[in-house]
């Protein structure tokens, strides 16, 4: 990619192609666009929320190649040809994932604004360590803020999902 070439020679926009929730997508992006800008403003994927735009709250967390990343801190152009998953892509064929069911049953959401980011971070956590201890959850999830204070309920939902996955 000739993105950082001489100013007069770089195209100010670029057609970005990547896999979003398993399907190919394209968007016209500026070099300064974040992945969150592209998802929300260009592709109308609204589950990642703009809670702070500085990587502090975790409400925009998405899976990039299976890893949880802050979409607001991710330069859009770096996801070229990669796999991005948002909450819209978690449930398959209209069937909820056990983690989503557990969030509902345990009351893991109140206002719901942080919920997408929580689900994605928890998905990444369970993929990495299928049987997390309480302390692991606290550490791994600590970049996701919830002002309604659903931390205990979310922890229970994750522990429950891990137990049932055994």
């Amino acid at each position: 990619m000739a993105l950082f070439a001489e100013e007069h020679s770089i195209p100010m926009t670029h057609i970005l192609s990547f896999q979003l929730n398993g399907a190919p997508v394209q968007a016209l992006v500026k070099p300064s666009d974040s992945l969150l800008d592209v998802l929300r403003e260009k592709l109308d994927v609204t589950s990642p929320k703009r809670g702070c735009d500085s990587g502090d709250c975790g409400a925009c967390t998405v899976l990039l190649e299976g890893k949880a990343v802050r979409a607001c801190l991710t330069c859009a152009l770096t996801v070229e040809n990669k796999q991005v998953v948002t909450v819209e892509g978690l449930s398959q064929d209209g069937k909820l994932q056990p983690l989503q069911e557990a969030f509902m049953a345990h009351g893991g959401s109140q206002c719901g604004y942080c919920t997408s980011g929580m689900l994605i971070s928890a998905t990444a956590l369970l993929a990495k360590s299928p049987h997390p201890q309480r302390q692991d959850i606290a550490q791994e999830m600590s970049g996701n803020l919830c002002r309604c204070g659903c931390y205990e309920e979310i922890t229970q939902a994750i522990l429950d999902t891990a137990r049932k996955g055994e």
Binding site: T46, V87, L90, L96, Q100, F103, M104, G108, T115
Partner: peptide, 9 residues
């Protein structure tokens, strides 16, 4: 009531 809407974005 809206839990499913919340967990599916």
């Amino acid at each position: 009531y809206d839990a499913q809407g919340q967990v599916t974005g």
